[in-house]
Each structure stands twice: as structure tokens, then as C-alpha cells.
Nucleic acid binder design. Sequence first.
DNA 1: ATGACAATCAGAGATTGA
Length: 259
Amino acid sequence: MKIATFNINGIKARIDALPQWLDEAQPDVALLQEIKSVDDAFPREIFEDRGYIVETHGQKSFNGVAILSKLPLEDVRRGLPGDDSDEQARWIEATVIGKQALRICGLYLPNGNPCPGPKYDYKLAWMERLNRRAQDLLAEGTAALMAGDYNIIPQAEDAARPEVWREDALFRPESRDAFRKILNLGFTEAFRSQINGPGHYSFWDYQAGAWNKNDGIRIDHFLLSPNCADMLQTVGIDKDIRAREKPSDHVPVWVELDN
DNA sequence: ATGACAATCAGAGATTGA
């Protein structure tokens, strides 16, 4: 089963580029972030025509996540537990029924800038809630993954110019510590379990010719529970689509699982 | 460098992103 995550930076703006990539990459499941659309405005027919089930958790103007799946989904849940006052649409999860059940969670973790400040506090609080959900997923026992735009640069080698990110919410020690604590629960970061070394990115800023200079960062990740990590076959980043017409500033990251 | 670049909502320019 091929599962991809892709921060599309607006479904309206990606109405051509996203279907084109789906037709080529043929993921069984695509986790989308920053759909920037309410549920009723999401153009689900475009994806249903391609054989996908569409589940959205949208919001006006900002944020918003979705799951596209060619396989049946069960028990869809929206919103990260732990704070009923949080109205930002950043979390959706469902069980995909393949050869065996897999709990799939799509997330758009808060950016957190400027830092310090209330947005950084929200990011760290959100990551504490993510940690608790991660613990519960392990306790439930079903194979599980959490994938999406983490807005975390895990290590210096995950940025072309780590020095410029030193004081940024994506690279501050508190953010990276919170990310590592989730890994330490027993999750495997899929990409780094197979590929070492610098030069692998999933985001290039629109500004200052970042793509042409390969001035990128790797912030879109797959975290696999132990029984899901056992299924991992291959990982990849579809970086080439960043060079196309009207691209998102992120590119898709994917895994293939033997499940 | 109060920047750049892009998307959204609105219908100009502020807000957000990373």
C-alpha cells in the first residue's frame, strides 16, 4: 500500500497540479494538509472520479486536512483530542482496511512563529496533545502511522542552511525535543530509517529563489508505530513537482507498506 | 530590509505561512 502526505497550500490553487500528481504517483492513500477550504467547498468529485473516498476536516481560509483513499475507511475522527476549545482544523484519522487494518492519522502541526510568543506556546501545547494521542495509538495495538506537515526540522542535516533556522520555531530545541519525545515512545521516522545524509528536503520557500538554490528544509514526516514500521518497504520524496507550473511550496512524501 | 513570494478573503490590503 502506497501512502503519501502532501501539504498542497490551498485546494483551489492546486486544482490542476494535485490531480496530475495523483494520476502519476497513484497513491492508495493521500493525506492532504492546508486545504484552506470548508468541507462543503472541497471539490470532492475530482477525486471521487479517480476512485478515491474523500474525507475532509476543513476550515475557512486556513489550515484544513483531508484523507483521500482508494480503500474503505472506517471510524473517521476529526480534531486532535485534548482541547475542546481548539477550533483549528489540523487533525484527521481513520482506519484503512487493506489486508490488515491500519490506523492512519493526517496532521498539520502548528508553525509556531514568531517565537517566543502565543503561537509558539500553541505549537508546544499541540505537540503535548499529539504525544498523548500517540501513546493511546500504541496502547490500542492496531498498526498506526501519523503523517503530515510537522513543521519540525529534526536535525541540522534536514536544512540546507541550518544556521538561519537556529531561532525559528521549526528548529528551536523545545520543538525538536517534543518531536524526539514522540519518537522515543517507539515510533520510527520512516525516511531516516532508510536514507542517511543531507540534501533531502520537502519544502522550499517561494521567496528568494529557494528552489533554484536548493535552499530547502525537510519538515513533512511519517511516524510509524512498531508494528507498522515492520511493514515498511520503501520511502520517497517527489521533489520534481516543485519545478512545475504553480506548485505548492511543499512536495509529497510517501511510503510503501507491505500490508 | 517594515523586503522578497504565495494564498485567502474580499474586492484593498491585512493576515498567515515557514
